[in-house]
């Protein structure tokens, strides 16, 4: 995609191409948290069971995308800035976002009752989303106080069309991946959560009799879709 078609940057050469992974991942990492807290609000206000499952499924995906953004940032930072990690405002707030995801995942994992786990996670996600702007601004303030930013991602020259169009496509593609993965994981979660009901049993029996030899069916029959 952007890896193949975009021209090389005149300053950074080909290493900038990791941007096509890094930037969409970073954007998606924040959107994931927002959608997780929206699902959390739905859980707490309307107590919709499906929202509980969506909430549970977003958290690990969001954490992995945040991790991807941090890792690609480090890989990109090494040839351009000469270091794997800089305590600048953006990297630090991404790291804290990762910690917030870990908190939600760990809390959900610790509570045995699935509905209670989802509601506890929902509350924590909402507390986190209130805190995210405060954390972001405090970290930016802290950064400007301690070390004047020597290099920021925003200081780059404006991108030509051949560069930002693939980026836009990649961002859209990341959102689509997120949607597909979320739907698949939620479908799996519904089956796991409802495994005692009749309709799931019928579904498993039906699919087991028709394509029992087919191992490539998506989003597992027995909770092993991931």
């Amino acid at each position: 995609m952007g890896l193949a078609f975009a021209p090389a940057d005149y300053q950074q050469g080909n290493s900038f191409r990791i941007m096509y992974i890094h930037v969409p991942a970073a954007i998606l990492a924040q959107s994931c948290y927002m959608s997780m807290s929206v699902a959390g609000a739905v859980v707490l206000i309307w107590r919709i069971k499906l929202a509980e499952m969506v909430l549970k499924c977003i958290a690990p995906f969001g954490a992995s995308v945040t991790f991807l953004a941090l890792v690609t940032g480090g890989i990109w930072g090494y040839p351009t800035w000469g270091t794997w990690w800089v305590w600048d405002a953006r990297s630090t707030s991404m790291l804290i976002l990762l910690f917030l995801y870990f908190g939600v995942i760990a809390l959900q994992a610790a509570i045995a009752n699935p509905s209670g786990a989802a509601r506890a996670g929902a509350l924590l996600a909402l507390v986190g989303v209130v805190n995210i702007p405060i954390i972001k601004y405090s970290v930016e303030w802290w950064n400007t106080l301690h070390q004047p930013a020597t290099f920021t991602l925003t200081e780059k020259p404006a991108m030509p069309v051949e560069m930002w169009l693939p980026l836009l496509i990649m961002v859209l593609a990341f959102y689509l991946i997120f949607t597909v993965v979320l739907i698949m994981r939620t479908r799996n979660e519904i089956l796991v959560r409802e495994h005692k009901t009749n309709w799931v049993r019928k579904l498993v029996e039906a699919s087991g009799s028709t394509n029992s030899s087919n191992t490539g069916t998506p989003a597992g029959h027995n909770g092993s879709g991931q």
Partner: peptide, 30 residues
């Protein structure tokens, strides 16, 4: 809030720190 969320859990202590420490960063910074 964190203490209330983890109150009934066996491994509450570490979990409590894990979920609330990121929220304390602005206070520490200021």
């Amino acid at each position: 809030i964190g203490a209330a969320l983890t109150v009934g859990l066996h491994r509450g202590g570490v979990l409590l720190s894990l979920i609330v420490l990121p929220l304390f960063i602005p206070i520490l910074v200021f």
